[in-house]
Nucleic acid binder design. Structure first.
Lengths: 336, 336
DNA sequence: ACGATTGACGACAGCGTTGTCATGTCTGAG
DNA sequence: CTCAGACATGACAACGCTGTCGTCAATCGT
């Protein structure tokens, strides 16, 4: 049932250590010997025991994915990207959804986690990846991580994959302006995410670039949820100055907005153009479908994981670590 | 930085073994001694090294979650439920999304995985949990698991949490009948899931119970996707005998159906009633909202995990392991 | 009051690897 | 043909914990 390195050694008529060398692809093993060992391993169906390796090397080949995200699609895509890279490098993934708490508490929890399980490294997503104290805490405690964040803050220096939400938000807003809109409403997301500020900044920049003034009454603060999108459009439409277009901070809000706007009897996009952000499944399941920016979540996850693994094995990593979401134009802003 | 059991022992002036006893809550430690050790542990911030424990006990405290599910919401809910239980029992969770493959290949992969990482057990979801050969394979190889499945097959005997999809589907169909519908269309999901057959069986049973005949031309085979729901309703409506109500095998299909039906200009539910299954986010994001059955995914996950952990620690588990989704009636079948 | 039991603890040997260092073997330069 | 020096291999001690068993003292029954 359980075959150990010992059995392999005996079978191949070499020492345990030589088997170990073969397993780890170390040099200094004659080809013939290596072959003997490889055969023995195959014949016996030997699998190295991870726990023993971890103990001996006092490090593990498991990384943790830390998140606190209400959005299932995002979480799953992230996981897929991470696993994808890990599987090709012999790493395993442990998931750690965490409730939102004080940075200090999170840091303590993570340190505890890492020392207990000897996690090799962490992949952090917003909001954790954007908590400055948390990151420097991890730095101090010598915990490897990579933080996925919006471009602006750029905390954590090298250990970062940044998403240029601002540029993308600007592109979307500019697209609306190009369509002739002058009164463009903005549905802000949860203010505890940095992405929120970035998307808003992009919105503002686009308006300024087009020499339009920013009307604060056209900005509504929501929560990235369907409900808050719906509520937001409701409020903006009751304004004296009604928007002719709305840019929602994510697709879920945009879907909510669209839902409510159509309830009110508005034609989309003729009477109200609506754009989202993220290109989540929502974007194609509304009518009309949503103009949005595609956040290549799985790509980001892969990039982040590659960067982390590279650092863990002390390889240098020359991968680009900034990603700009791409504009996708659909019916919700462009009349058929 | 790294404090070992040795340091604690020295500090508490006891033997290593006694510290071990305290950590594992073993009896035969005098209260005073225990207290000394506990203090030492706290003062030093000691964390037992999992790898070493795993090696010494030759078993691990990590369970694997094995799935292959296109539905993000389901996957995440599952994970939440599992983690919930695990955190309270000191277990960790490793996720293993798997491509769909031959049962033998999956079994080999899983065995490999388990012997390599010494995973304590597996939580299997459809379709893996419903592959008879796979399950018996795991049985033979002495790999602990719990399989979440529709009630009918009941493979794997005790190691199972069953969802009574059939009863729930029957309830939904009966509800439609109660509303006076006689021509009820059915959108079937991916035939490789057992759930698919169960839901269809429930649909048929309800019709028979009401002395209605099952009209095969009112049954469309789809894929659990939005697109296939849309396509399905399209096809059923082009029938000579048009349905006045449609029961879709999941909410995503129902949303697709609703989307298409409204495009065609039909009033929902007046001209066409639509019901889904699962109570996913889709169900509340359509207009009108979907009548559906709530599959308490997180509860199921918890139940399954509890059962697995109970078995792992050789405790007896007296938990019920069958769950029937509950009917939720909303606007898509009930005029306001 | 005395042997017999029980309870509290420690010594020591693994668990299955890897790292270090010593040993033995081969190669090529002189 | 000889002898560094490079290469190939093995012995042995960790890694940090748990299981087993032995020891000793406190407790019990009679």
């Amino acid at each position: 049932m359980k075959v150990s390195i010992n059995d392999v050694a005996r079978r191949a008529e070499v020492s345990i250590k030589t088997v170990s060398r073969v397993i780890n692809n170390e040099p200094s093993v004659r080809a013939a010997t290596r072959q003997k060992v490889v055969s023995a391993i195959e014949e016996l169906g030997y699998q190295p025991n991870q726990a023993a390796r971890n103990l001996a090397r006092s490090r593990s080949y498991t990384i943790g994915f830390v998140y606190s995200n209400p959005n299932a699609y995002y979480v799953v895509s992230m996981q897929e990207g991470i696993i994808d890279v890990c599987q090709n490098s012999g790493y395993e993934v442990m998931i750690h959804p965490l409730p939102l708490q004080e940075q200090q508490a999170v840091a303590d929890y993570l340190e505890n986690l890492v020392t207990r399980t000897r996690l090799a490294g962490l992949v952090l997503t917003p909001p954790f990846s954007e908590m400055p104290e948390l990151l420097s805490n991890l730095d101090n405690r010598n915990i490897e991580y990579v933080a996925i964040q919006s471009s602006a803050p750029s905390l954590g220096g090298e250990r970062t994959v940044r998403v240029n939400d601002r540029a993308a938000a600007k592109n979307i807003t500019s697209h609306l302006i190009d369509q002739g809109h002058q009164q463009i409403g903005f549905l802000r997301g949860d203010p505890t995410h940095y992405a929120t500020q970035e998307r808003e900044a992009g919105y503002r920049e686009a308006l300024l670039d087009a020499h339009l003034t920013v009307d604060e009454s056209l900005i509504y603060s929501g929560q990235y949820s369907f409900e808050s999108g719906s509520e937001g459009v409701n409020q903006l439409l009751s304004n004296s100055k009604k928007p002719t277009a709305i840019f929602a901070s994510n697709d879920e809000m945009a879907a909510g907005a669209l839902f409510r706007a159509r309830l009110t009897g508005l034609e989309i996009p003729e009477q109200l153009a609506i754009a989202g952000f993220e290109n989540s499944p929502y974007a194609t399941q509304t009518w009309p479908q949503l103009t949005t920016a595609t956040l290549p979540v799985a790509d980001i996850a892969q990039l982040a994981t590659q960067q982390l693994l590279a650092r863990l094995s002390k390889r240098d990593n020359e991968l680009d670590s900034e990603v700009t979401p791409e504009l996708i134009i659909r019916g919700s802003t462009l009349p058929a």
